[in-house]
Computed example of a mutant assay.
Amino acid sequence: MNERPRVKILVSGETDDQVGHEILAKLPGVELLPYDPNNAELSAAQRDAEILIPPYRGSHRPIRLLSQLPHLRMVQLLSAGADEWASDVPAHVTLASARGAHAGPVSEWVLSAILTQLRQWPALVRYQDQAVWAHRKFDADTLSGKRVLIVGAGAIGTAVARLLEPFGATATLVASSAREGVYAAAELPGLIGDHEIVVITAPLNEGTRGLVGRSFLAAMPDGAMLVNAGRGQIVDTDALVAELDSGRLRAALDVTDPEPLSSGHPLWSLWGAVISPHSARTVPGTNLGLSW
């Protein structure tokens, strides 16, 4: 009996992706083809790959290699979002994301970002840097009783809602279409003003690009907080900068537009902004692509 040919998988050879080699090497019927995501050309052997796995970091880099893979059947991303690849992957090739794999760490980041802002940790750390005992220099706030609007009711958004419950906060979930316990995106305008915190966990697509613009931000109550763990392009950066500069709103951002931010970008210096470098998902074990 003839053996079935092994499935050839192109796997990044970078340090963060070595764990993928270890896991896939244990599967029967698989041939691993390591590659360098920074190289513009594939070898003859690498061009025979049927499955492409982009690297954990900077996953967009191998997009330029797609035209060199005539036998490609699938692209398996390690990220929850597929927007960077969607327009470049041929229609006959399956594009799969790691939807749900990062719900644990990203939802934890959202909760930590909210608490960081409410309990005034940025100001506390600045006072600490100056060796100032900042007792009663400002008022902290509590998450208890807060109403949180979560735009994006997928695995991450629903995980955020679950984490909020023990803190006594109330979550309102919104998705592209309504279902039990979830509002439709068309209902957003009537919901924004009733929530002190807005969390973005939606994917980037034509329906969400620029969704959080001037009118959206203007509808948020004075003192409200925007938390973006989705994609930077969902938020109008100029409009957000204007609101933060006025002191009317606060924000916690893991993603920005542009990304990365230049050293002179105004978001860096605005008192009401807390920024992390697109690292909400990055905790030990997440490059395994495994859900918590």
Score class of each variant (00 low, 15 high):
residue 243 E to D: 10
residue 201 T to K: 04
residue 215 S to M: 04
residue 244 L to I: 08
residue 233 Q to A: 15
residue 215 S to P: 00
residue 240 L to T: 10
residue 233 Q to H: 10
residue 243 E to Y: 06
residue 247 G to C: 11
residue 233 Q to Y: 00
residue 245 D to G: 13
residue 217 L to M: 08
residue 222 D to E: 14
residue 199 V to R: 03
residue 217 L to T: 05
residue 237 T to K: 11
residue 240 L to I: 12
residue 228 N to V: 10
residue 244 L to Y: 09
residue 217 L to E: 05
residue 244 L to S: 06
residue 214 R to Y: 01
residue 225 M to C: 15
residue 239 A to P: 05
residue 197 I to G: 12
residue 238 D to Q: 11
residue 246 S to W: 03
residue 212 V to L: 04
residue 196 E to L: 05
residue 228 N to Q: 14
residue 232 G to M: 04
residue 203 P to F: 08
residue 230 G to N: 06
residue 225 M to N: 07
residue 213 G to P: 01
residue 242 A to P: 00
residue 212 V to Y: 03
residue 244 L to F: 09
residue 217 L to R: 07
residue 207 G to T: 13
residue 234 I to F: 05
residue 242 A to T: 11
residue 238 D to I: 00
residue 206 E to I: 00
residue 242 A to Y: 00
residue 232 G to E: 02
residue 231 R to W: 10
residue 199 V to P: 03
residue 244 L to M: 08
residue 224 A to G: 14
residue 218 A to F: 00
residue 236 D to S: 10
residue 240 L to W: 13
residue 237 T to W: 06
residue 223 G to L: 09
residue 208 T to H: 09
residue 245 D to W: 00
residue 248 R to H: 09
residue 213 G to Y: 01
residue 220 M to T: 04
residue 197 I to M: 13
residue 217 L to I: 07
residue 204 L to H: 04
residue 240 L to N: 12
residue 217 L to Q: 06
residue 241 V to W: 05
residue 228 N to M: 13
residue 207 G to A: 13
residue 213 G to D: 13
residue 203 P to H: 10
residue 241 V to D: 05
residue 232 G to D: 04
residue 241 V to A: 08
residue 208 T to Q: 07
residue 227 V to I: 15
residue 218 A to V: 04
residue 196 E to I: 07
residue 220 M to I: 06
residue 219 A to G: 00
residue 240 L to Q: 11
residue 235 V to S: 12
residue 226 L to E: 07
residue 234 I to R: 07
residue 205 N to A: 04
residue 244 L to H: 05
residue 214 R to S: 13
residue 236 D to F: 01
residue 206 E to S: 14
residue 206 E to C: 01
residue 224 A to S: 15
residue 206 E to R: 14
residue 228 N to H: 14
residue 200 I to F: 09
residue 204 L to I: 09
residue 215 S to Q: 15
residue 225 M to L: 15
residue 205 N to L: 04
residue 202 A to T: 07
residue 197 I to P: 14
residue 228 N to G: 11
residue 245 D to I: 00
residue 214 R to D: 13
residue 210 G to V: 06
residue 221 P to A: 11
residue 243 E to K: 07
residue 223 G to I: 11
residue 225 M to V: 15
residue 221 P to D: 10
residue 212 V to F: 12
residue 208 T to S: 15
residue 234 I to H: 05
residue 199 V to D: 09
residue 237 T to M: 11
residue 235 V to T: 14
residue 247 G to S: 10
residue 213 G to T: 00
residue 238 D to F: 00
residue 239 A to S: 14
residue 243 E to T: 03
residue 211 L to D: 02
residue 205 N to D: 15
residue 225 M to S: 12
residue 246 S to M: 04
residue 216 F to P: 08
residue 196 E to F: 07
residue 234 I to W: 03
residue 224 A to C: 06
residue 239 A to M: 06
residue 245 D to K: 13
residue 214 R to V: 10
residue 199 V to L: 07
residue 241 V to T: 11
residue 200 I to L: 15
residue 242 A to C: 01
residue 223 G to N: 12
